[in-house]
Nucleic acid binder design. Structure first.
Lengths: 225, 225
DNA sequence: TTTTAAATATTGTTTAAGTAATATTTTAAA
DNA sequence: TTTAAAATATTACTTAAACAATATTTAAAA
């Protein structure tokens, strides 16, 4: 992890605060850079503060026993990390950089000062929480009642929606099949089998860790309702 | 649904606001009483405001297609309902009274006025959201990786923790097996089979819709980690 | 530049848990 | 108070998806 400056324009913290507060932010924030694969914080760590993603890609994940991992969500520019910590002493999830990632970090004390000074920030934070809650509950429902193929299909569509595509229409973030299975709540083998099926039907094309969705429509057919 | 007054002491809204604000609350709130089985709001309804449970029992649930239901959580005295609506136009979930339930209802406008006037209320609301998010994510992990028996066991322990027990040590809220299966994310038949197993092993005793946990320890043995 | 560890590829076996089918009992309306 | 609709009971059948086993490739440390 390395330090750097951020132009206070793209992170949630700066865009949701009043202009006058930005100088205070610049003085109080800490910009951190994490390399691909580096842990930002770990489940069980004492809560130190809150992170705003400036650029990069992050997975927020939790573990069941030693083996099984569930990726709660993928995050990128504009997203918040570590906000669950507000409710407790320790982070209930881990965050890992999936590519080189730049974040703004502020302490809990400064977060509270920011909320006191910026009612709009607090309001937007509340809305962010409500929307995260909606997403989490939708995903709960999917994990409970949707079958695996649909969940894998949703994972692919979500990756495309969050990270976008490059000129060759491949999803910008190259990702391991293990991570796809961890997000869909299934095993690597099941992802492998479904990928074979999708590739044979020309619904997706893969090249190493890069994935291209050729037919969003056909992929969505695996997601009923 | 029927109207009534509430003593402004037990709901989240009143306890988290400054004393001076309580008169304003009394003037602006609406107390509503729902009968067992009555819908409080439905998935897709336009968001009108937010509800604070004063007494009773409520299930917050969502549906997958026509058939499959997932109960997101059970709520009782002190809990908040409809707060997911803050992020959108319509409620993403439904809420149904499981027994006669009394709630305080306030409109979105009054909620915003309350937040502006009561920074502590806003802060506690934020903490409530963060803790709901933690619970939702823990449950996501369980639905993805824990097997059904463990999830049913957790449902029973949660019901006991939320609603408490009576003199005969039965969980205070009588509940259908369908609701238990909808909370555990499984089918009625699977709950039936596991209940037979638990009853034979004398881990639980049932009497109609009432359930008594005889050995919390043995029940917890189905929940690894 | 070894060497160690992940990640991937592939297929066959097993099983947990859903589906189906039918009968009975409760509960809630009309 | 009849009647309709949920909820429950029970068992047999089926299958989606996990588990297991082994080989190969890729990536990251030492």
């Amino acid at each position: 992890m390395q330090l750097s400056t951020c132009d206070t324009k793209r992170c949630f913290l700066c865009t949701a605060s009043i202009p006058e507060w930005r100088d205070v932010i610049t003085a109080r924030k800490e910009t951190r850079i994490y390399k691909k694969g580096e842990l930002i914080f770990t489940e069980g760590d004492k809560v130190s503060g809150i992170y705003f993603v400036y650029e990069g890609a992050v997975k927020v994940h939790t573990h069941w026993g030693e083996e099984k991992e569930l990726i709660i969500r993928f995050s990128t520019t504009g997203d918040i990390l570590g906000h669950r910590g507000i409710a407790g002493e320790v982070y209930p999830v881990s965050a890992t950089a999936l590519e080189d990632t730049k974040v703004c970090f502020i302490t809990n004390e400064f977060l509270e000062a920011t909320m006191k000074t910026n009612p709009l920030f607090t309001q937007r934070l509340l809305q962010f929480y409500a929307s995260e809650l909606q997403k989490a509950e939708r995903r709960m429902r999917n994990l409970a009642h949707m079958e695996v193929k649909g969940r894998i299909a949703e994972t692919l569509l979500e990756l495309q929606q969050i990270f976008g595509i490059n000129k060759e229409k491949y999803i910008k973030l190259p990702i391991t099949r293990q991570d796809i299975s961890a997000h869909a709540g299934t095993t690597y083998e099941t992802v492998f089998k479904f990928f074979t099926e999708l590739t044979n039907a020309n619904i997706i094309t893969t090249s190493g860790k890069s994935i291209r969705i050729n037919s969003e429509k056909k992929l969505r057919a695996y997601i009923p309702v």
